[in-house]
Design a protein around this nucleic acid. Structure first.
Lengths: 149, 149
DNA sequence: TATTGTTATACTCTATAACTATA
DNA sequence: TATAGTTATAGAGTATAACAATA
């Protein structure tokens, strides 16, 4: 059972869900295919960006923000520590938890290398009109809100 | 080197590329996590949808439309054949190629099951306003165009 | 007991390299 | 030779189940 007939009312007959799914799947593939000199992966870049944006987090909080299960985040954090981009220190009041934080070189990496990593997307965005970018900006907000539920 | 300063001009300071990347990565994770009774995966559903939308295609054409390399598509097509959702017949004029086509049960699957597969996203979309859905519809078009380059 | 996190394991997704068959 | 496709292989991404440590 579909949840609504809104699709035929307001958008086109192909189905918004289908078109949005396909668009997201394809852009995701493109983004993952971008590789810079460094061997960091998109998943790791994403976690790094979140640490940059949100400040120190516990592994569980970081997993929740990224929308992955804790065991998946364990591996990402381990990789970031190996790169020297993140550090882990004990939680002040709860011995089970830890605090994961960007290191100095992690911060430098975010500022310098993440831009390079996103060069492909930046270039594509630069080719759009200002109106299209504004639209995508609002779409990103809506998509992120949906994904967070 | 960034490609333009448009970001600070028109959007917000966090960087449109970063925000769009994160949104797409997260929604992609959510979509892949949706599982119905059937054991078909999102990648297979995506190829099936494209076959439905475009009609019979060669493996190479299908790979190009999905934005994956031919060996990746080989596996997807093999899975769809095993499910009985697609058939392969010889190309009429070129013995190297083949024509991949939706079977009757593949067509039925697209019509019935793909909707169920997308139930989660449909529900999220139904919770938005008509304006937000209209915006996402246009965003999907732009994103798909960018990913296709 | 409940919660946080890790380890073990397995499966999906995807790519590159090497190969086969046909043009 | 060039092209279309497949096979072999490997790495990234992610999950669930089982476990350990702490609350």
């Amino acid at each position: 059972m579909r949840y609504a007939n809104y699709v035929t009312d307001t958008v086109d007959e192909q189905g918004l869900a289908s078109r949005l799914r396909l668009a997201v799947v394809r852009l995701n593939r493109r983004l993952r295919a971008q590789r810079t000199n460094s061997s960091i992966t998109l998943t790791q870049v994403s976690a790094l960006s979140t640490l940059h944006k949100c400040g120190p987090l516990t592994p569980g909080e970081l997993a929740a923000k990224e929308g992955v299960q804790p065991p998946s985040m364990t591996r990402v954090i381990a990789a970031l520590e190996e790169f020297g981009f993140a550090t882990r220190r004990p939680h002040p009041t709860d011995g089970r938890q830890a605090i994961v934080q960007l290191s100095d070189s992690g911060l430098a990496f975010v500022n310098e290398e993440v831009g390079a990593r996103e060069a492909w997307l930046d270039k594509r965005l630069a080719e759009l009109t200002a109106e299209e970018r504004e639209l995508l900006s609002r779409a990103a907000e809506i998509i992120d809100r949906m994904a967070g539920q």
